[in-house]
Simulated scan of single mutants.
Amino acid sequence: MTVAINPLTKLLAEKGVLLADGATGTNLFAMGLEAGEAPELWNEQHPERITKLHQDFVDAGADIILTNTFGGTRHRLKLHHAQDRVHSLNKTAAEIARAVADKAGRKVIVAGSVGPTGELLMPLGALTYEDAVAAFVEQIEGLQAGGADVAWIETMSSPEEIRAAAEAAVKVGMPYTYTGSFDTAGKTMMGLHPKDIHAVATDIGEGPLAVGANCGVGASDILSSLLDMTEADSAAIVIVKGNCGIPEYRGAEIYYSGTPPLMADYARLARDAGAKIIGGCCGTSCGHLAAMREALDSYEPGPRPTLETIVERIGPLRNKTANEGAAAPARERRRRS
Rank of each mutant, 00 (worst) to 15 (best):
G147V: 05
Y178F: 11
E141K: 05
K171T: 13
A82M: 07
I5R: 15
T2P: 07
N214W: 06
R334L: 14
H80R: 11
P305C: 05
G186T: 12
K15E: 08
E34F: 09
H193W: 09
P159R: 08
S257Q: 00
R318H: 02
K78F: 11
N68W: 01
R336C: 15
M156Y: 09
G251E: 03
R76D: 00
I254L: 06
P39V: 00
V150M: 03
N214R: 12
G280T: 13
D84A: 02
M263W: 03
K241I: 08
Q55H: 11
A328F: 09
S181V: 10
A151P: 02
T259G: 04
N319I: 07
T321E: 00
I64T: 04
R318L: 14
D196K: 13
G22M: 03
A101D: 08
Q139M: 05
G287N: 08
A97V: 04
L226K: 03
Y249P: 10
A267S: 07
A30F: 11
A210E: 02
S298L: 06
R336V: 14
E40A: 06
I109P: 12
V108P: 07
K187V: 14
V110L: 09
A148N: 14
L89G: 10
S234F: 07
D59N: 15
D183S: 04
C281T: 08
E34S: 12
H46D: 12
E34D: 13
K103D: 14
G147I: 06
V240T: 05
M189G: 08
G16R: 01
L120R: 07
T69I: 07
M263F: 09
D272P: 04
A126T: 10
I65E: 13
G251T: 12
A328V: 09
A38R: 01
A35M: 10
Y299P: 09
A273C: 01
V240H: 07
G242C: 14
A199T: 04
Q45I: 14
H54L: 01
A235C: 13
A330W: 11
W152Q: 10
